[in-house]
């Protein structure tokens, strides 16, 4: 194993362990903080795989905005500092479903590649990514932006007071 492999394995372990804490802890805000760790470790994995730009996007969007919004909402509604006793969590089905899905996907992936070596992709620089998005994939990109706009308009309509009841 090269040092990159070791790093990848270590970051993966951190991500999985933090992900486990997210669902296993009974303190709501700590679950969000573990999510920060988990997503940060995933950003580190992108970095090891030379997808530099994607790693920073992950930090900016997921750590800096999505998780913060999530924590913000949790604190606005209810966020006891100690353990929350009234969290409903299925006891044994969740590990079963989660473990089976994870193992199944891993097995599929291993079976798909076996021992064939795959040439590493070119580093994910902003330039390469920009060229890919705005030359080859410009139509899906625009369609996604229309979808997001529709979601935004929908959110405003739903949350507007005095609208159609």
């Amino acid at each position: 194993m090269t040092s990159a492999d070791w790093l990848l394995a270590a970051l993966g372990t951190v991500a999985v362990a933090a992900g486990h804490r997210v669902v296993a802890t009974d303190r709501l805000v700590r679950a969000g903080l573990h999510l920060v760790l988990c997503l940060g470790a995933v950003a580190g994995m992108y970095l090891v795989l030379t997808a530099e730009f994607l790693a920073w996007v992950q930090v900016l969007i997921y750590v800096g905005a999505v998780v913060v919004l999530l924590l913000f909402a949790v604190m606005l509604t209810r966020a006891p500092v100690g353990a929350a006793a009234d969290l409903d969590r299925p006891g044994w089905t969740a590990p079963l479903v989660g473990g089976a899905a994870g193992l199944g996907l891993a097995a599929l992936l291993v079976d798909a590649y076996r021992w064939t070596a795959v040439a590493p992709a070119a580093p994910g620089t902003p330039e390469a990514l920009g060229a890919a998005v705005f030359r080859s994939w410009v139509l899906p990109f625009e369609v996604v932006s229309v979808l997001l706009l529709a979601a935004l308009v929908g959110a405003i309509v739903v949350s507007r007071p005095g609208g159609r009841r």
Binding site: V36, E52, W56, V63, A65, M75
Partner: peptide, 20 residues
């Protein structure tokens, strides 16, 4: 860094976590 500006903005965004 090639994406230095983006890196700086992304990392600065993490500060809000400490506040929360």
């Amino acid at each position: 860094l090639d994406a230095g500006l983006f890196f700086a903005l992304a990392v600065l965004g993490v500060g809000v976590v400490s506040l929360l």
